[in-house]
C-alpha cells in the first residue's frame, strides 16, 4: 500500500523532485527545501523563484528567479551563482549535457557552458520554452510561429521549424527523432526532425502545461484534459494517425501534472483538485495515491528507482508518497 508523508512547505511549489535521492521542493517564495531526516532550507533567491531544473549529472539543482540570478544548489545546500541578468525575470531554464545551462528572458536565450562561457541567442519574438537535444549540444527554442534549433556551442545557421501561433513549452523525444511544443491554443505541435513533417495534437479543453516521456520514450503523457492524454511515439510515424491513450479519466476535473514512472509503463496523474492517481498504460488500472487537496497539483517527480513520488501544490501542500 502506498504511504503518504506530508512535508511542511510554504508557498507555491514550483518544482518537486529528487537530487541524489534527496527529495527537494523549490518554492515560489525563493526558497528551496530539502526533506531528508527533517527539513533543510536554503534561500537561493531573495523573493521569487520562477524555475528549477536538475543538472543531468545530478551535481546540483539550477534555479532562476525574479532577481535575475541563475543559481546552482548542491545537495549539501551550497549555493553558487552561475549567471546574472540584473532586473530580468528569468522564468525559463534547461539543463544540458556537460554541465550546460540554458536560460531565457524576453526575446533572448543564453547558454552557459560548464567553463563559464556564455553564448547569446536572440529572437525576434519572445522565447516560450527551452530544451536541450538528447544528443549533441543543441538547444531548441520554442518561439512565436515555430521553433529554432541552435548549436549551443558554436555558430552556424540554426534549423528553423515553422508553425503559426505561439509555442510555449518544448521537448525532444528521448530518441531525438521528434520535437514537440505546447501552444497558447489548447494543443500540441510536433515535428519529425528527419523531414520537418508537422504533427498536430489537438482536442484538449485546457492548455498543456505538464508533460512527461514514458520509459524508453514510447509515450508522451500530457496534462490539459480530464484524463492523462498519452501519445504514442513508437513506430515509424509516431503519433500521426494514432489515437492517444486516455488514463485516469475523471468526469469533473482536469489533469494539471503528469509524471511517468522511470521503469514501468505507469504514469502518476495529478489533478486541479489536488487528487493524485497512478495509472497503468496496459489496462488503465488505477491506484489512488492522494485524496483531494486544497489546490491544484503543481509538480511531481519520481525517484530513479521508481519507489517514491514527490508532489507539491500551488498552495504549499507537499509530500512524499512511497510505494514500498
Amino acid at each position: 500500500m502506498p504511504t503518504l508523508a506530508p512535508v511542511d512547505v510554504d508557498g507555491f511549489v514550483v518544482r518537486a523532485g529528487f537530487l541524489k535521492d534527496v527529495p527537494f521542493f523549490a518554492l515560489g517564495d525563493g526558497s528551496l527545501c530539502f526533506a531528508e531526516g527533517g527539513e533543510r532550507r536554503v534561500q537561493p533567491h531573495k523573493n521569487g523563484l520562477l524555475a528549477a531544473e536538475k543538472m543531468l549529472d545530478e551535481k546540483g539543482l539550477v534555479t532562476s528567479g525574479d532577481d535575475g540570478l541563475i543559481q546552482k544548489i548542491d545537495s549539501d545546500g551550497t549555493i553558487t551563482t552561475l549567471a546574472e541578468r540584473p532586473r530580468k525575470w528569468i522564468d525559463l531554464l534547461a539543463c544540458g549535457p556537460n554541465g550546460a545551462v540554458a536560460f531565457a528572458s524576453g526575446r533572448t536565450a543564453w547558454v552557459r557552458l560548464d567553463d563559464g562561457k556564455e553564448n547569446e541567442f536572440a529572437h525576434e519574438r519572445a522565447v516560450g520554452g527551452l530544451a536541450f537535444a538528447p544528443k549533441g549540444l543543441k538547444l531548441a527554442v520554442a518561439r512565436y510561429d515555430g521553433a529554432t534549433i541552435w548549436w549551443a556551442n558554436a555558430g552556424g545557421a540554426p534549423q528553423e521549424l515553422s508553425w503559426k501561433g505561439a509555442h510555449l513549452g518544448i521537448s525532444f523525444s528521448p530518441d531525438g527523432k521528434y520535437l514537440v511544443t505546447a501552444m497558447q491554443e489548447n494543443a500540441l505541435h510536433g515535428w519529425r526532425l528527419s523531414d520537418s513533417q508537422d504533427m498536430r495534437m489537438t482536442g484538449y479543453p485546457a492548455k498543456v502545461k505538464s508533460w512527461s516521456w514514458s520509459q524508453k520514450g514510447r509515450y508522451l503523457a500530457t496534462s490539459g484534459a480530464n484524463a492523462a492524454i498519452c501519445w504514442p511515439f513508437f513506430g515509424k510515424t509516431g503519433p500521426m494517425g494514432q489515437n492517444p491513450l486516455q488514463l485516469g479519466t475523471r468526469g469533473d476535473n482536469i489533469v494539471s501534472v503528469v509524471a511517468c514512472h522511470p521503469k514501468e509503463d505507469v504514469v502518476a496523474v495529478g489533478y486541479l483538485d489536488g487528487m493524485i492517481m497512478m495509472c497503468r498504460f496496459e489496462d488503465n488500472a488505477e491506484v489512488l495515491l492522494r485524496r483531494l487537496g486544497k489546490a491544484p497539483v503543481s509538480s511531481m517527480s519520481w525517484d530513479d528507482a521508481g519507489d517514491r513520488l514527490v508532489f507539491g501544490s500551488e498552495d504549499g501542500e507537499a509530500g512524499i508518497i512511497s510505494l514500498r
Binding site: 508557498g11 515560489g28 525574479d66 519572445a126 498552495d315
Partner: peptide, 18 residues
Amino acid sequence: VRGDLIRTVQNLMKRKGA
C-alpha cells in the same frame, strides 16, 4: 492577447500572497 502578460501573471501567481 498579450503573451507577455499571460507569462507575467502566471509567474506572479507563484508569489501568491505577496
